[in-house]
């Protein structure tokens, strides 16, 4: 197995959550308002939306394979990602195959919030650009 390069996001920005709440039409208050997250006993800071955490995993594998196209992303959301968190990730290439003349890469991926443990694990499948074949 080949490891993916180490990946990190220095800061989860609560402003991004507010824009995403509008784009998602998601009124869940825990993504907008620290007081609501506290009142519900969820966290003391706004909680990152699940699809945003998934997007971080997608960004990580796309950074590892520039020009590739992500065709599948299957994730389990294991813990909360909170505003101001630093997120680190990694994974392994677990398979390569040629399908319809295109090379497909299968990866196991994970993300962690240092100090709180794993927040996501999953599997991604990417199609490599033709120029990357046999490299």
């Amino acid at each position: 197995m080949t490891g993916l390069p180490a990946w990190k996001l220095d800061r989860v920005d609560p402003g991004h959550m507010k824009v995403l709440a509008l784009l998602l039409a998601d009124p869940n208050p825990i993504h907008l308002d620290a007081a609501a997250a506290q009142r519900l006993g969820v966290a003391d800071r706004p909680v990152n939306q699940g699809p945003s955490t998934m997007a971080l995993a997608a960004n990580m594998v796309l950074a590892a394979f520039p020009g590739a196209r992500l065709t599948s992303l299957r994730t389990r959301l294991l813990g909360l990602v909170l505003a101001e968190d630093r997120i680190e990730g990694g994974g392994d290439v677990t398979g390569r195959e040629i399908v319809d003349g295109q090379e497909r890469i299968r990866c196991q991926v994970y993300l962690e919030a240092p100090g709180r443990g794993r927040v996501l694990d999953g599997e991604a499948v990417l199609v490599l650009p033709a120029a990357d074949r046999n490299t």
Partner: peptide, 17 residues
């Protein structure tokens, strides 16, 4: 929704870009 429900798992399959 105001009780703060959470997504547990999600899978995206892109059949085309």
């Amino acid at each position: 929704i105001d009780d703060g429900p959470l997504l547990a798992e999600s899978a995206i399959e892109l059949h085309r870009p």
